[in-house]
Write a protein that binds this DNA or RNA. Structure first.
Lengths: 85, 85
DNA sequence: TAGATAATTAGGCAATCATCTAAATGCAAA
DNA sequence: TTTGCATTTAGATGATTGCCTAATTATCTA
């Protein structure tokens, strides 16, 4: 649970998730959407992958990233417990 | 949104929220539940208050903290968008 | 008003985090 | 098999975070 919240507690990473919500993208496509260096974005992607918020698949020389919502379901469950008496 | 995720990305703060889910508590009662110093817990409470996840009310020399779930509702909404196509 | 209790604020320190550049790896095409 | 593109890994650095002790503020009670 901690790794999950940590992963979500960065605006760049949340923005990456928003992008992947629309469609799968390569690491390069994601990096190009930001002013940060490619290695920085690569590191963010690694953190998202460790949190299981994204999945990556290599296709030739490209690596495609896509959203995985199973952890978000867990998170919603966790939060929902608080909203009920 | 960032301050909210930041506030939730610490296990001690999440545990405080769990405690306040059961019932309202004073700063001292919360601090006693942890091995950390009182100022450390006070600081955590401040971060939770800034994120609007808790509300504090002074009663005499005690300050009572209670859970506020409105932000969690927002968070659930934010997450829910990802789980739907 | 003095002393005790509850809690916060202030200041400092070590660990973690986000970022960068440079180097390495993986794959494709010439 | 060399060259080039896509991406990650390595290593360094400044900023942020979480913790501590000491000092301060607020309130209650004798």
């Amino acid at each position: 649970m901690n790794i999950l919240f940590k992963a979500l507690s960065d605006p760049t990473r949340r923005q990456i998730l928003e992008m992947l919500k629309k469609k799968d993208l390569t690491a390069g496509e994601i990096a190009n959407a930001f002013e940060f260096s490619k290695p920085s974005i690569s590191h963010h992607l690694d953190i998202l992958r460790q949190a299981n918020l994204v999945v990556s698949i290599r296709e030739g020389q490209y690596i495609y990233y896509s959203l995985n919502t199973t952890e978000m379901d867990e998170l919603i469950k966790w939060l929902y417990r608080f909203t009920r008496k």
